[in-house]
Design a protein around this nucleic acid. Structure first.
Length: 120
RNA sequence: CGUGCAAGCCGACCUGUCGCUGUCCUACUGGGAGAGAGGAAAGUCCGGGCAACGCAGAGCGCCAUACUUCCUAACGGGAAGGGGUCAUUUUGGAAACGGAAUGACCACAGAUAGUGCCACAGAAAAUAAACCGCCCGUGUCCCUCUUGAAGGUUCGGGUAAGGGUGAAAUGGUGGGGUAAGAGCCCACCGUCCUAAUGGUGACAUUGGGAGCAGGGUAAACCUUAUGGGUUGAAAGAUCAAAUAGGCUCCGGGUUAAGGGUUGCUCGCCCGAUCCCAAAGGGAAACCGGAGUGGGUAGAUCGAUGGAUCCAUCCCGUGAGGGAUGGGCUAGAUAAAUGACAGGUAGUGCCGCCAUAGGACUCCGUCCGUCAGCGGCAAGACAGAACCCGGCUUAUAGGCUUGCACUUUUU
RNA sequence: GGUCCGUUCGUCUAGGGGUUAGGACGUAUCCCUUUCACGGAUAAAACACGGGUUCGAUUCCCGUACGGACUA
């Protein structure tokens, strides 16, 4: 199973990020706000992870949460694989809680989110 | 051995699986090797490097600093020293006050350049000033045979000793002196001026002189001296796609585009620049192609080898400087250095076992400890963002050294 | 990353060396009313924290904590 998470699967272009925030749809699934945008052109799913400075003041905590989210996505991204010609998506995962969540919980929530995304 | 204080140092380690960011090798989109957060990376409080822009010279303004000497690339940082304040001990003295030792602290230039402010209380708060008091004189009252003493009181004056107020009241203590008092005079202390000596200097010591100038506040304005051009790496430099548009060249090209009327269509109306005398041609507009400059997305550099680290020696009281040898190991950019599992060591608590010892109601019970085993818990503060030198703040636990104290044993 | 500002009753704010720290809304009690509302009276309630300067600090200075704005 492919568990790599190279740069091409991360959303890093300033322009595409702006487009994502301007045009996307969104839903909440605590502790995440999920925004996504189906696109026609593109090679693979791209994901953006954001943890607000307003919610978590210390850089250490923000880094920790981002690492846990990244790890969870890396282990579950196969659920999003396009098999029947579904659309490629750009996804933004925005952490809105002020608490530090354990990895196991984040893992469960993220699996739910990915399942929901495949049905959309 | 324990506790406390001070200084310095460390900031648990190992393995496996799956990953992330650079580097190198091999290879062709795979594989391998090796590297990958801190003492504060933090706060952004100072200083410097670096970069762009600006810049004749001088003044004003603004900001910062403020005992001295030194260190340093520089600093508001540091070192050494000076002075002061406070506390303790001791000592001299009648006292005021002074000397010595130890410790702590000090943003420590100027209040005699000027301006402002000093609530309440108090007579008065800064050119001095008389509320009570003290003293003198004068008038008057009382008493008295009279003069007139003592006392009360009005007015005028002297007096800063005493009282009282206050954070602060115009040198202090003692003596002389006086109507009462007062540096009015004297001794000592303090202050100011001045000279000599010592010290690079802050300053110190000693001598001489002056009865004594004078409140606090500059973290109030200010004065003096010194320093500061402005903006920050998202600075700045290089390369540069697509699309649109600019310029140049080549080719085509004189066709009408457009506007009004109308719900819409047809129709109708308006409407065509310049040059050559004209037919016509040329230029411009327009269309197509090629080239080119700027420059957006993006990429690269800036950007990680440096006022560098370690060891030894030399110079210096010290901060630090020099020489020699050796080492180098994050470089990301919507931003890497992780997730999960297991183990080891140390710490704390609990239990078990064993035991030096102590207490008692001495077959026994309790306290307590070196070592061992098992279980549980915690593992701090905190994440590079161009780079350095400092400062400040946060920090579980551990180690080393020094000092002080307590207990036990000898 | 860089620059600048703020913190005062429960809330919004005034005050910039000496105040009983003022006002509005809210809260509590009393009066008015048959009752409620309105109105009236009274009361409680605050200078973010730690140092320093000063006789005296909410105010001035330094540090810390927290909050906010601008810049791209």
């Amino acid at each position: 199973m492919d568990r790599k998470f190279p740069k091409s699967e991360r959303l890093h272009s300033r322009k595409l990020i702006k487009e994502l925030f301007d045009k996307s749809s969104s839903f909440f699934l605590y502790p995440f706000k999920v925004i996504f945008l189906p696109v026609i052109s593109g090679e693979t799913n791209q994901v953006l992870i954001s943890v607000s400075k307003k919610k978590l003041k210390r850089a250490v905590d923000r880094n920790l949460i981002k690492r846990r989210i990244r790890e969870a996505y890396r282990h579950h991204k196969h659920m999003l694989l396009v098999e029947d010609g579904g659309s490629i998506k750009r996804i933004g995962l925005i952490y809105v809680s002020s608490d530090l969540m354990e990895y196991s919980e984040i893992q469960k929530k993220l699996a739910k989110i990915l399942r929901k995304l495949t049905t959309l």
